[in-house]
């Protein structure tokens, strides 16, 4: 690789030659010297470009080797998406399993509550003076009350399965992000990191934003059903 000093010497030789040719009025010699000067300059530019290209190549090679980019793009990110899909399936299965069991328990609780109440009335009428009568009817009435409470709690258990929908929506949001990340990383690997397409698309409000996730700024969101009701009242709904 030529140094600036070497180049300067080469330029000086051609400049002197041009000067002499001018003095002597030698057109041919002048043009030869001028061409020589141009050649020296071009060779310096070419050398510079070669150096930049080599540096770039080295940087890219190091980038490929050092970073986990390829592994991320080809394995870890698709893995992350599959894991999330798996969580979705697990929570969906668990929620349905819970609801299946609740569905089976509800009629049992209803039946016991109804029968206990019916038996209490019947026994009271049939054996008004039996020694066990107050205890037994008391127990039957308590059973009816307890089973009604159990039935109420089962309804709450059912409603609580709504977590699956809310967590599922959040997971789907993250999965979309992972998809975009995968595409972007694939592109990055393809072009060797020299150009990265900018900008994640802002989410379309028409499609919805999904549930509020604590710790993430959602902008202008309402605080709860009371806020919704107040807002709708203002809007005349």
């Amino acid at each position: 690789m030529s140094t600036l000093h070497e180049n300067n010497n080469e330029y000086a030789i051609w400049v002197t030659a041009m000067s002499q040719a001018l003095d002597q009025g030698d057109k041919v010699a002048f043009r030869t010297a001028l061409a020589g000067f141009d050649g020296a300059r071009n060779s310096e530019v070419t050398t510079g470009i070669r150096k930049v290209a080599l540096d770039l190549q080295t940087a890219l090679d190091r980038f490929r080797v050092d970073s986990k980019l390829i592994d991320l793009a080809q394995r870890q990110v698709p893995d992350a998406r599959h894991r999330l899909a798996h969580v979705l399936r697990l929570t969906d299965d668990a929620a349905h399993r819970t609801m299946d069991l609740v569905d089976r328990c509800c009629p049992l609780a209803d039946h016991i509550a109804h029968e206990a109440e019916r038996l209490a009335v019947q026994y009271e009428a049939a054996e008004p003076s039996h020694a066990m009568q107050p205890q037994l009817t008391g127990f039957l009435r308590q059973t009816a009350t307890s089973m009604t409470a159990v039935r109420g709690n089962l309804a709450e258990v059912l409603l609580a399965q709504g977590y699956q929908d809310l967590s599922g929506q959040i997971i789907r949001g993250v999965m979309t992000l992972v998809d975009e990340l995968e595409t972007a990383l694939g592109e990055l690997v393809r072009i060797g990191g020299s150009e990265l397409e900018a900008g994640s698309r802002s989410q379309d409000s028409r499609r919805g934003h999904g549930p509020i996730v604590p710790g993430i700024n959602h902008g202008n969101a309402v605080g709860g059903q009371q806020d919704v009701d107040a807002l709708l009242l203002d809007l005349g709904v």
């Binding site: 929908d165 409000s205 059903q225 919704v228 807002l231």
Partner: peptide
């Protein structure tokens, strides 16, 4: 819905929604 932005509720109201309940409910 879990959609809880004020502008969304306004948008739904303008589109003629009869009621709006946010999840969890």
């Amino acid at each position: 819905t879990a959609e809880a932005k004020r502008e969304q509720i306004v948008e739904a109201a303008q589109a003629g929604v009869s009621g709006y309940v946010i999840k969890p409910f």
